[in-house]
Design a protein around this nucleic acid. Structure first.
Lengths: 118, 118
DNA sequence: CTGGATCCGATTTGATACTG
DNA sequence: CAGTATCAAATCGGATCCAG
């Protein structure tokens, strides 16, 4: 049984480590949107339903701190901040795609229907 | 933006749906161990470090309720209960492997070393 | 042996208001 | 526009005790 410490937290396995980096309710949705677009804070906010400023800001900060996205601030008024995916983030996206495909498969098995975008 | 309800819970995307079925701290470790072995409750308990009875029992119940594992009770004294993976669980294992491989990759990038099993 | 029941603290997320 | 600060709610998981 592998077991290890990272940043003062005990992990039992690599899956847990990965999910701690890019798991949670909002990180994958954020990465997903930055897949092939550079986006501003406000664009992300509008594009991700129900996310609050608190969650968006904190998750962006964590993703940046661990190198999945980068942040560019423009010295303008009004302020402009752009977020873009990094190479590490691109690798993460490949996993997101796999989980997503699996999720779609499961939803089909469970008879879950998705709503259309309005 | 897909958005849907399953069992009275609102989901934002397929990833979230998948992780709600097989995510959390203990479900993947359990599935992983049943990958190619039938195991008893007590064996799982011994093999998964630090898991409590509460978590093991509840996670087994949820995995069974959603068809990832099956449970066989023997009418013996003392009681014997065996858990085995189902076809649906086997598909899940393929995803676990992908997440695990990604986690190992990330750990390498982050310079995390795993301890050897004692 | 295989759990269920209860209590409780820690963590995560949400709501709301406010600011450079 | 792009966030912070504060407080509250919900969820998760651990500890402990009990039972068929």
């Amino acid at each position: 049984m592998p077991e290890f410490i990272y940043k003062n937290k005990l992990y039992y396995n690599p899956v847990e480590f990965a999910m701690d980096r890019i798991g949670g309710t909002w990180k994958m949705p954020i990465l997903w949107r930055l897949k092939e677009k550079v986006m501003r804070y406000g664009e992300l906010k509008k594009d991700i339903p129900r996310i609050t400023d608190k969650m968006l800001a904190s998750q962006l900060k964590e993703l940046e701190a661990e190198g999945f996205i980068s942040r560019k601030v423009f010295a303008e008024v009004p302020p402009r901040v752009e977020y873009r995916i990094t190479p590490r983030g691109k690798k993460a996206i490949r996993l997101v795609e796999q989980i997503r495909n699996y999720g779609l498969e499961l939803m089909h098995e469970f008879g879950v229907k998705q709503e259309k975008k309005k």
